[in-house]
């Protein structure tokens, strides 16, 4: 089922230049500079190094539009490693490894920092999962998953570039065919 985008519910602060109340003491210098572009959070998760066009897809995948806490999204930031990048900050929510792995579909090089009291408490590496459950829509219009209410399931056949295979209709999909449910 396609969810309606409710971006207006999300607090989007593009390229804001708000000074954080506290300077992150343990962050590397470069990181601090970048952090200035988007408000710092006390508790929650920072997802960095997102390809800039994938930021809003991650919002969909993690269902961030229905988050209670503040969600900040920045896109088109300069990055030395990936050109333009995006950052998402999710206040009050620590992502689990499973949730982090879901991001891998659109942002395999993302870094995820769990923040406690303005400190980076934990860094989680994105790992492409072997099985993708109910995140991606099958591109085959005559697949049973597009015609009957059934959660989709894909096997990851190749990680880079991403190639996945539908558990039901067995059709292979490349990165460009991937559409989030």
């Amino acid at each position: 089922m396609a969810k309606k985008k409710a971006k207006n519910k999300t607090h989007i602060k593009r390229k804001e230049r708000i000074k954080p109340k506290k300077v992150i003491p343990n962050a590397p210098k470069e990181e601090t500079k970048r952090e200035l572009k988007i408000s710092a959070i006390e508790e929650g998760t920072v997802i960095d190094h997102i390809p800039t066009d994938a930021a809003f897809k991650i919002v969909e995948i993690l269902d961030l539009e229905n988050q209670k806490g503040i969600v900040s999204i920045a896109t088109n930031l300069q990055s030395k490693s990936i050109g333009k990048k995006g950052i998402i900050k999710v206040g009050g929510k620590s992502l689990t490894q499973d949730e982090v792995n879901k991001i891998a579909i659109v942002a395999p090089d993302a870094t995820v920092n769990i923040i406690k009291n303005y400190y980076v408490k934990e860094k989680i590496k994105v790992k492409t999962p072997e099985i993708i459950d109910n995140v991606v829509k099958c591109s085959n219009p005559v697949c049973i998953t597009n015609n009957e209410q059934v959660p989709t399931k894909f096997y990851v056949a190749k990680k880079d570039p991403l190639k996945i295979k539908c558990h039901y209709c067995e059709r292979s999909m490349g990165k460009d065919d991937i559409e989030i449910i």
Binding site: N140, V142, C143, I144, T145, N147, E148, V150, C166, H167, Y168, C169, E170, R171
Partner: peptide, 9 residues
């Protein structure tokens, strides 16, 4: 069944 994946389901 005409739909692909129907047998798996």
């Amino acid at each position: 069944h005409p739909l692909e994946g129907s047998a798996r389901l």
